[in-house]
Simulated scan of single mutants.
Amino acid sequence: MDPDAVDSLLDAEGGPDTGDDSLAEGARVPHGSTDDPQILDFSANINPKVPEGATRVYQTVLPTARRYPADDYSSYRITAGDYVGCDPQRVVPTPGGLAAIRLAIQTTVRSGESVVVPTPSFGEYAREVRLQGAEPVFHAHDDLFSVDPADHAMVILCNPNNPTGDSYDPAALRAFAERCRDAETVVLADEAFLGFTNEPSLAGEDGVVVARSLTKLFGLPGLRAGFAVATGRLRDRLAAARRTWSLSVPAEAVGTYCMNQTVFVRQTRERVASERARMADRLADRFDVRPSDAPFLLLDAGSSDAVDEAIERARRQDIAVRDARTFRGLDSHFRVAVRLPEENDRLLTALGV
């Protein structure tokens, strides 16, 4: 979508007329997860625990879903502002983090422009850029700050990065965001996994759009709750283009409830950090384990055949792991989530470590 069209509130929901080629290039990308309840799923990075009381909240508000929600989502925005440390007026509710990513790209990037996309990283970034008729320019995620932002409409980053798990130094990240702001280049910061860390959010920084997902940290990927944060014209564009009633009544209520569960968040962070270190130590006996700040570990098996072997060993024990060879630049890797201790033990046994 042309940002100028958003400013004039014309066709705010639509996308650019880029033709069939752009849509064809935006083909679906592979993801982890399985819908088989008999499979122990280490392929998706979802918290296996849900805040106590979330089910009760859902059941309580479900009858009110017979009417449309209030579209200002005031309680949700106030809670989200507290959750990431920003003015609630800067929060734009979205049905999940990916919806926030699309909204940011859709309202910022014009057809024919270029966008810096980290690699290896979340495959949806390049897809969303192409759907706007723009060109993704791939750059190593761990060398992203060497990019000259003046040459591009947007720079996308994932913090912590998926699938590698490493997070950016906060001071260096803010310095880079300032360089981008000086160059009038928008930064899109995907913070889907930042809630698993103690690192500060970029929410509220001028020139930055933050995309947040609630569904991973709180173990509710099917709820589809998230939000974007921006300031000034960026925020106005997001708010203008946001779909009316973008959150369901249950998603708003459960999302608001979950963001207030500070003890749950603290306990989750502690458990993930402890189990991640234990798993990494065991897995290092057989694989090259990438240091991680996220609820997952990227493993280098040494060869593509070794990845096939690891996937098959896990499958024989009804366990799914993520084949990371679908990520750009990775040819001998797979990724495993950090789950509960007894579940992690099952994985370690299945992989022979």
Rank of each mutant, 00 (worst) to 15 (best):
R266V: 08
P163D: 09
A306M: 07
N159E: 12
G53P: 07
Y76M: 12
V353Y: 06
G226N: 07
L297T: 10
L348M: 15
L157K: 02
D190F: 00
L103E: 00
R179I: 05
R130M: 11
F227S: 03
V6D: 04
P93K: 03
D318R: 14
V249D: 12
G195I: 01
L238Y: 08
R278F: 05
R102C: 01
C86W: 01
L131E: 09
Q261G: 07
A153Q: 00
A172Y: 02
F196N: 01
G53W: 11
T34K: 03
T34D: 05
W245I: 05
G207V: 01
F176H: 06
P69Q: 00
T268L: 05
T256V: 10
S248V: 11
D331M: 04
N344P: 05
R322G: 07
N260D: 13
A134V: 03
F287H: 05
M154G: 07
R328L: 08
V187F: 01
R181L: 09
R242S: 14
P163G: 09
L220D: 02
F287Y: 15
T55R: 15
P48K: 00
H333D: 09
S246W: 10
A153M: 05
L188G: 00
A310Q: 08
P291L: 09
V208R: 01
R235W: 11
R271E: 12
E309L: 13
D305A: 14
S8F: 07
C258W: 07
Y125N: 00
S167E: 08
I311H: 08
D293S: 14
Q89D: 13
S303F: 10
E13S: 15
V116F: 00
S292T: 07
E252V: 11
A203Y: 03
E124N: 00
E270D: 15
Y58C: 05
